[in-house]
Simulated scan of single mutants.
Amino acid sequence: MEFHIAHCNINVTDLEKSIAFYEKALGLKVVSKKETPDFTLCYLSDGKTPFELELTWLKDHPQPYDLGENESHIAFVTEDFDAAYALHQEMGCICFENKDMGIYFIHDPDDYWLEIVPQHK
């Protein structure tokens, strides 16, 4: 029996704002959407890997989500770390840096943390 990772889900309070953030900050594109009367599922992809990020918008949940201590995160690797850092600095979304490890974190509109890692060659 084999398994592979298909997607990771996060719930968002403003779907269009979140889509715009992920497109600008990480280059992710919408690949599919499922609309229901109660919620919308939106799948984003980098177009290179089979992994997708699922954004779930619950239409009756406008309040912020309780993310606890925000210790969970999704990591993204970039070939151009300096350009990514400059973009994220311009966007004002860098929330934590670990210069000793050579990484930093950005946060999305719902305050989910996303790790940015340089591609090691």
Rank of each mutant, 00 (worst) to 15 (best):
L58M: 15
E79G: 11
L41V: 01
F76R: 13
P64G: 02
L67T: 05
H61M: 10
K59C: 08
E52R: 09
A6P: 05
L87W: 10
I74R: 04
Q89L: 14
K48V: 11
A75D: 06
Y85G: 07
F105T: 07
K33Y: 02
G68M: 03
I116E: 02
I5H: 04
D110N: 13
Q89I: 02
C8R: 07
L15M: 04
C8Q: 09
I74H: 03
F96W: 14
E35A: 11
P37G: 11
C93Q: 06
W57A: 03
L28R: 05
I94V: 12
F39Q: 14
A20M: 04
H120W: 10
Q119Y: 02
P64I: 00
A6M: 04
Y22I: 00
I116M: 04
L67M: 11
P50I: 04
H61F: 09
M1N: 10
V31C: 15
M91V: 13
P50L: 08
N11S: 10
G47C: 10
E90K: 14
I103T: 08
I116T: 05
E35G: 15
L44H: 01
F39T: 14
H7E: 03
K121R: 11
C95T: 06
E79H: 12
Q119H: 11
H7C: 01
A75H: 03
L41I: 04
C95W: 06
I94N: 09
F81N: 09
V12I: 10
E23G: 13
E97T: 09
P109A: 07
D80W: 03
Q63V: 08
P62A: 00
K99E: 12
W57E: 01
H88S: 14
L53I: 02
H4I: 08
